[in-house]
Simulated scan of single mutants.
Amino acid sequence: MANRKRKDYMLSEKNIEYIEEVKEKNNLKYNSEALDLIIREHRQNSDITTEAMIKLIAKEVSEQIKLDFKGIKKASNDTDRNTQILLEMINGFFVISEYGRLATTEDVIAPALTRASEIVDKRKEAKIVKGFDRKY
C-alpha cells in the first residue's frame, strides 16, 4: 500500500454506507482500505467469472461435438456393416454360380443395379429430410 494517491470521487450515499459496512465488517481502519478490498474482490470475481464462462463454453462445445461424432460414428458403422454383408452375399453368389469372369459396369449395367441405385437415392433423400424436420 506504499503507492497510494489521493483522489476525490463523488459517491452516492448508498455506496458510502456500503464502503463503511465493509470497513466495519473487516475491521479496517479507513474507508479507502475498504474501497481497495471491494475493488480487489471485484477484479478477482471478474477474472473467475471469465474463466468459468470459458470453461462452460468449452464444455458445451465439447458435448455437442461428441453428440455429432456419435451420429457420424453410428452411420459409419451401419454403412460398414451393410457393405460387409453385401460383399459376403456377392461372394456367395459368385461361388454358387461358379462365375469365372466378372462383368463390370463398364461392360454391362444390369437393370437391377439402376433400380437399386434409384431406391437408395430416394431413401437417402428421405432420411435427409427427416433430419431437417427433427432439427427445426
Score class of each variant (00 low, 15 high):
86 L>M: 14
11 L>K: 05
29 K>N: 07
33 E>F: 00
31 N>Q: 11
3 N>C: 06
63 E>F: 03
15 N>I: 04
44 Q>S: 09
42 H>W: 06
118 E>C: 04
124 K>Q: 15
39 I>Y: 04
85 I>N: 10
33 E>W: 02
28 L>K: 00
103 A>H: 10
38 I>Y: 04
126 A>R: 13
82 N>E: 15
132 F>T: 04
89 M>A: 09
79 T>P: 02
25 K>F: 01
45 N>C: 05
72 I>D: 04
7 K>I: 08
63 E>Y: 03
110 A>Q: 09
42 H>C: 06
88 E>Q: 14
4 R>K: 13
129 V>S: 06
24 E>S: 03
2 A>H: 08
9 Y>F: 12
69 F>I: 13
131 G>W: 07
87 L>D: 13
35 L>R: 02
105 T>N: 10
16 I>E: 13
85 I>Y: 06
11 L>V: 09
92 G>F: 09
101 R>N: 14
99 Y>F: 11
65 I>Q: 09
132 F>K: 13
27 N>A: 03
113 L>M: 11
18 Y>C: 00
67 L>K: 15
70 K>E: 14
62 S>Y: 05
109 I>S: 03
107 D>W: 08
2 A>D: 08
89 M>N: 06
89 M>T: 07
42 H>K: 10
61 V>G: 07
78 D>Q: 09
47 D>F: 08
133 D>R: 11
76 S>I: 04
32 S>R: 00
82 N>M: 15
121 D>M: 13
57 I>P: 03
62 S>H: 10
74 K>P: 02
126 A>L: 11
110 A>K: 11
83 T>M: 13
121 D>T: 13
50 T>K: 15
63 E>R: 09
12 S>K: 05
47 D>W: 03
19 I>T: 00
90 I>F: 10
129 V>A: 12
54 I>F: 09
2 A>S: 14
35 L>M: 06
33 E>C: 02
48 I>G: 01
99 Y>D: 13
64 Q>N: 14
17 E>G: 04
120 V>F: 13
44 Q>F: 05
102 L>D: 04
